[in-house]
Each structure stands twice: as C-alpha cells, then as structure tokens.
C-alpha cells in the first residue's frame, strides 16, 4: 500500500499509518457488519410488525463517545510526536538550497555546485533542504522519504531527511502550480559514499560513460531545451535545431554569424549576447548548470541533426 521506505522517518510513520489502517478496518467491520446484518436479520416480513420502543441507552452512548475520544487522543500524540521528528531538523545536517520555479527544481550544494531536477545525495547522511520559490506555491514531496513541504515565494521553508538505501527516488510537486504542474518532477539519486565522491568530482555516474551524442540528446530532453527548440524544423520560442549547424544566422542587432561549436557554447553560457532575428530573448542562462562534457554533448547532438 505504501511505497518502499527510503528514509529514517519512513518506518515510524508507516507504523502509525498501519495502526490507523487496522483501527479503521476494525471500526469499519463493526459498523458495516451491523448495517448489513441488521438489514438482513430485521428485514420487514409483513406490514403489521411491531418494534420495541428503545429511545436511548446512556452507558452505551457514553462508551461510543469516550472510547473513540481516547483513541483520537492517542492518535494525536502519536502523530504529533512523528511530526516533530519529521520536521525538526537535526543540527548536523548538510544543507542544500532549493529554488522551485515553474516547472523545475534547482539545487545548489554547499560548495556551489548546481543541479537541475536531478539531485545526487550521499546515503545515510542527514540532508536539509532550504527551499524558496521563484513564482507561485510549489510543494516538495518525495513519497519514499515520507516528507513534504510547501515551497513559498519570498519565504524560506525547510525539510530534512536521511536516506537509508541507495537508489533513485521520485521528487514531485504537490502544490498545484499551473500548466506544467504534473511534469514538475525531479529525481533524487541516493549514492553510496564512494559514488558520491566520484559525483562531486565528475558528475553523475551514468552520464560519465555515455557517448557524447546520447548525452546531448539527454540534455535536450531533460534540461528544458525541448520546450523551445524543435527537431523537425517547426517554429517554437527558439530556432529549431534541425540543420542549424553550419547555417548562418542573422541577429537582432543586424550582425550575423555561422553556427559552430563556439557559437553554440556562447548561446548556452551567455545567450542574450546574440539573439536570432525574429526571436525574443527568453533563453535561460545555462552557465554553471551544465558540465563541460554536457556542453560537448549538446554540440555533438546538434551536429547530428541534419
């Protein structure tokens, strides 16, 4: 019923969940059982049936008021305890800054490395996410960690977790934020300590050995290029990549240049220096967001699009 337990707080939280679940099952069986059983047993046999005149029964009524009340108080304290454990951040947590914007997650590590949508973290380490939104409300949810917190504009909120099993976990936005709400996903890749060190140096493991063209395609799909640059020559917010390599582009300032490796790199790092005529300056800056090898990948990928 619940997704796998990926963090230290998942276990206790699931215990509570299962407790409420079985409690509900018991109460449901009692009530539904009565309804169905009475419905069959006391079914009207004829028009003249007499029924007993039972108006109330104080002790019975007190019992079914007080017992649920006590159970509810238990639930409250249990839930409050779990809530405090899940939200009070331990002092020794590693801090990662999160900036949510429509419709992507931007992360920044303490040493300044930045990542988009994919977060790599070490296993068995307490992580605190300090979050802020660029626009509307978002909400940070990793189902397998059982953590969720809204991300607000102009105010920091935080959430913490300590993952227990290396692997990939989904991150989703759970506060409705418009058109791209349901695709505002990210992934949290929990790495072993060795892998994490490697990551800090060279980037994510599965990308390291990928052929450049494939890496470029991945960047195209995962870093938002797709939404503005088509591959089939059709017009979107930016020029199509089909056959663009080697073409001469005219710019809004009247100059022109051939699309080559240097031009592509410049367009990624400093896109607003040259704007292709008839387009608007809407391209985001990818400086610091792409590793060198990923830039090379994009160049190779564009070259391959004849």
């Amino acid at each position: 019923m619940l997704p796998r337990q990926g963090s230290t707080i998942a276990g206790p939280m699931d215990d509570l969940y299962m407790f409420i679940f079985w409690l509900s099952v018991v109460f449901f069986i009692i009530i539904a059982g009565q309804v169905v059983w009475f419905g069959m047993k006391y079914r009207r046999r004829g028009p003249g049936e007499k029924t007993p005149h039972i108006t109330h029964h104080l002790n019975l009524e007190l019992a079914w008021s007080i017992i649920p009340l006590l159970l509810c108080i238990v639930l409250f304290f249990w839930g409050f305890d779990g809530y405090m454990k899940a939200t009070v951040v331990p002092g020794d947590a590693m801090e990662i800054q999160v900036r949510a914007k429509r419709w992507q997650w931007e992360f920044e590590y303490p040493d300044g490395i930045r990542a988009l949508n994919d977060l790599y973290i070490p296993v068995n380490k307490k992580i605190r996410m300090v979050m802020i939104s660029d626009d509307v409300l978002h909400s940070f949810w990793v189902p397998e960690f059982r953590v969720k917190m809204d991300v607000l504009p102009n105010r920091y909120t935080d959430v913490w977790f300590e993952s227990t099993i290396p692997g990939t976990y989904n991150l989703t936005c759970t506060e409705y934020c418009g058109k791209g709400h349901s695709t505002m996903r990210g992934s949290i890749k929990v790495l072993t300590p060795v892998e994490y060190e490697d990551f800090v140096k060279e980037g994510p493991p599965e990308l390291k050995n990928m052929p450049l063209r494939e890496l470029g395609e991945l960047v195209y799909k995962s870093r938002g290029c797709e939404s503005c640059h088509s591959l089939d020559g059709s017009r979107r917010d930016g020029p199509s990549w089909k056959g663009i390599f080697g073409k001469t582009e005219k710019f809004t300032d009247g100059t022109s240049a051939v699309v080559d490796e240097n031009y592509i790199r410049e367009s990624l790092m400093n896109p607003h220096s040259k704007i292709v005529a008839t387009y608007e300056a809407v391209m985001p800056v990818y400086k610091g967001l792409l590793r060198d090898r990923e830039v090379l990948g994009v160049i190779e990928y564009i070259k391959s699009l004849k």
Partner: peptide
C-alpha cells in the same frame, strides 16, 4: 525551529532572476 535555526533567512541562491 531546531537549535541550528537562528531565525535568520539563509543566504539565497545567487540567480540571474532576482527574487
């Protein structure tokens, strides 16, 4: 808030879009 929370807003992420 926990002990290490000073009540101060943490340093914001530097970004091109100032928010």
């Amino acid at each position: 808030r926990p002990a290490n929370w000073t009540g101060q807003a943490p340093t914001p992420i530097p970004s091109q879009v100032s928010n």
